[in-house]
């Protein structure tokens, strides 16, 4: 059962990624696999939520708070982040999607959350997210929230 405790870690990841429970899908997709087939009859509101973890003084915000989108069409939204420190820093954004049943229908061909971001001292960066909601998005979903939590991982990276 001691081993079972540890086995729960990969099991949990598999379950969350497979079902989208916990808003865990990263939506990472290769651009060539994403074919646009816009459904112009349907409009879904996409909201962007940003949080900086642990009271860090980073500036981190989307350029638009919300967007009306058609499923099946690619959109690009820019996020701006600024390193408040007088030294180089590294950051990692962790995505989450609500409601959970929208998670598996979100495809992203580009996102700053796919990798750790390096910032020079006081550098400000504009970082794009290119995403599409698939046409199969459940009919009852009219609002999708993309949440990004920003972690300063400079200390973690140094270890």
């Amino acid at each position: 059962m001691f081993g079972f405790g540890f086995a729960l870690v990969p099991l949990y990841d598999v379950l969350c990624n497979w079902t989208g429970f916990n808003g865990r899908s990263s939506g990472m997709s290769v651009a060539a696999d994403v074919a646009e087939q816009p459904d112009n009859t349907r409009t879904v509101t996409v909201e962007f939520l940003t949080t900086v973890n642990g009271g860090q003084p980073w500036a981190f915000a989307p350029d638009v708070q919300r967007l009306e989108v058609h499923p099946g069409k690619l959109y690009t939204v820019n996020f701006t982040a600024q390193n408040p420190h007088d030294a180089a820093a590294m950051a990692q954004a962790v995505p989450s999607i609500a409601p959970w049943n929208a998670a598996r229908y979100l495809k992203k061909t580009e996102c700053f959350c796919f990798r750790q971001q390096v910032f020079a001292a006081l550098e400000e960066k504009h970082m794009p997210v290119r995403f599409m909601l698939e046409r199969e998005l459940p009919a009852e979903v009219d609002t999708v929230t993309l949440s990004y939590t920003f972690f300063d991982v400079t200390q973690l990276a140094l270890r």
Partner: peptide, 23 residues
């Protein structure tokens, strides 16, 4: 199972594992 969970906490704090670290 509890022993496993607290061991993960221990390695998260001192040995650089990230079982419970979102970052």
């Amino acid at each position: 199972v509890l022993a496993g969970a607290v061991t993960m906490l221990l390695t998260d704090k001192y040995f650089g594992t990230r079982f419970f670290s979102a970052a």
